[in-house]
Each structure stands twice: as C-alpha cells, then as structure tokens.
Design a binder for these strands. Structure first.
Lengths: 166, 166
DNA sequence: CAAAAATTTGGGTATACACCAAATTTATTC
DNA sequence: GAATAAATTTGGTGTATACCCAAATTTTTG
C-alpha cells in the first residue's frame, strides 16, 4: 500500500500536470530546440550529439547546456553529458505537445506536414500554454499529430491542478 | 484612357500583390508593432505618438524609425515625422491581414478575441506569408476578423504575381 | 525671440545566439 | 601507463535586437 502511494507520487512528479505554474514562454526558441532534441534522443546526451544535431559549434552548445542546467531543466555532468531533470522532462513534454498540436492545427489549413512542422518551429516558443490547452480541448484532445503521438499529460484535465508536497 | 491606365498602375503599386518577393519574416516583432501602429494612425506620424503608443522611450522610437526608413518602409523627415512608403503600405497591409487571420483562427479554438489578439501579437512576426495565404484560402477568405475588417489585397489571387516595371 | 516641447544623438546595458582559439578533461592506442 | 587523439569547456568577440538616460539639436509657442 505504501508502495503504491509512492509510485503514484512518481507518476505525478514526472507529468506536466505537476507544474501548473509555467506559462510556456520561459524559453527562447533555440533553448526549446535543445530540450526537444535531448528528450527525443533520450537518456544522457553528449555535447557533440547536440552540436551536430542542431548544426552549431560545440562551444555554443556547451554554454547553452550550462544555462539550461542553471535554470533547472538539465543535469549537467561536465565533460560527460546532460539529461533532463524532472522539471525538464515535464516541461519538454509540454514543448513537444505544443509543437504537435500546432503542427496538426496547421495541417487543417492546407499546409503539408513538413510545411506545418517548419512553420511551427519558427513561432512555437511564443505560444502560451494557456492557448495550447484551449486549442487542445477544442480539437477534442487528438492523440496523433503530424510528428507522432501527442502526449496528453496535462491537457486532459485542465481543471485539476495537482501539486507536489512541500 | 491614358489616365485610367495610370490609376490602374497606382492601384497595383499600393497593393500587397505588387511585392511577390517578401516572405513575411523580414521584420522583428517590435518593428511589426511600429508599422502596424503607423498604418493605423494614418498619414504622417510623430515620434511622440509612437513612443507613447508603444510605451517606449522617444529615443528608442527615433532609432527604430530610422532603421525602418533605411530598410525602405518609411519616409522619415527628421524632426517632422514618418509616413509609410509604398512598399511600407503594401507590407503593412500584409502585417495587418496576418494579424487578423491568425487572431480569427484562434477564436475558432476557444480563445476570446482579446486572448487571440494578445497571443497572436507575440508570435505573428514568425509566421510566413505562404502560411498566411494558405490559411486564408482554406478559411474561404473571410472578410471580417476579430480586430476589424480583413483587407484582402493579395489573398484572393495567390496565383497572380504582378511585378512592377523596372 | 526666448522658453518650452519635441526629437535626435551619443553612450551604456541586457539578452540571444553564434564563432574561434586556447585550455582542460576524458578516451584511446601503442 | 604514458603519449596522443578526441571531446568538452572557457575566454574572448561579434552581430542583432531592444531598451534607457543625458545631452545636444531643432521646432514650436507664448
């Protein structure tokens, strides 16, 4: 019984749902790219993988990773690599949901999947979580988007605001 | 007859249609604000009107107006004010159409007019003209949006690409 | 025409994003 | 197990955007 409770806590902790405070406007477009890349890569990711993935100098990557770590999204072990913190995971799940919802939306207006994805990549960092949640509700919480499955951590229960014990 | 021809030329010159080259991504979010403000104000606009309208120091306004003039969107008579060039008019008509189309779109997904307008203001500068034209077509070229009438300079004839004589 | 108001200029700050070169750490190979 | 190679970080720079203040300039007004 105590064990079940613990597992439930872990589930909440890893979900977007657990961080009702963020607006979705916290990160610059480029930082959004970094987090999405790291989540999609999975586990611990090295500087070189990111710098070649995002076509940027390793020194730029190193500095950006440091900033994301200072902001609490990443664990950074110097010379070893980064992985997402629990906050980082929850936040990046939102980033990916946002990207997919917006891309899906644009495909309903005559853009191809690729066009929609490119277009959204340019502006998504400036679309608020509130707007994404409303769009998501209005679309009936679609499960599949143009870039793969949409993860519905929070969108399904906008009214519920679970908080972590303090 | 020669007179009619001349008027026709003027009509084209002042229309979005006449500039098939721009992508809609030329200007930063703030510069978009400046041009929209100037078009809505109409005629010659003074630095003070803009700086109080956009809540920014007059010195900042003065510098930005200079940049927009150098880029060809404004005529700037020092100490007197600015007005839109023909390019500036055509471009700003697109900016306003983009703003209205995107705002209208978001109101179809559960956002209020004001929410949609605020949301769009944050990201519109990063939405391409191609995407706007596709969305506009797909919506059936709506004539009214949440922020007033939508001006359809170009959207009605995507296939036609008039060019200025050189 | 002198004072007041508007505008511009010069100088300074901050953020975001990028690069290169040099220093440091880790990994490899002999 | 060192020497070399590869990866990473640090320090220094550069560009672009956007903002402010103070001082100089121009225009307006009383």
């Amino acid at each position: 019984m105590a064990n079940n409770k613990y597992r439930f806590f872990i589930f909440l902790y890893m979900n977007e749902q657990s961080y009702p405070e963020f607006t979705g406007l916290e990160l610059s477009p480029r930082k959004v790219d970094y987090l999405k890349f790291i989540l999609e890569k999975g586990g611990t990711v090295r500087t070189t993988e990111i710098s070649s993935g995002l076509q940027v100098d390793p020194s730029t990557t190193s500095k950006t990773l440091n900033e994301l770590a200072n902001a609490g999204y990443l664990n950074h072990v110097p010379y070893r690599g980064v992985d997402l913190t629990e906050l980082g995971k929850a936040y990046t799940q939102f980033l990916i949901r946002r990207h997919r919802i917006l891309s899906l939306l644009l495909t309903h207006y005559g853009l191809s999947s690729e066009e929609a994805c490119d277009e959204v990549s340019r502006f998504e960092a400036f679309v608020s979580r509130d707007a994404v949640d409303k769009i998501c509700s209005s679309m009936g919480h679609p499960m599949f988007g143009v870039c793969g499955e949409i993860s519905h951590g929070k969108c399904l229960h906008e009214e519920t605001h679970h908080r972590l014990p303090e």
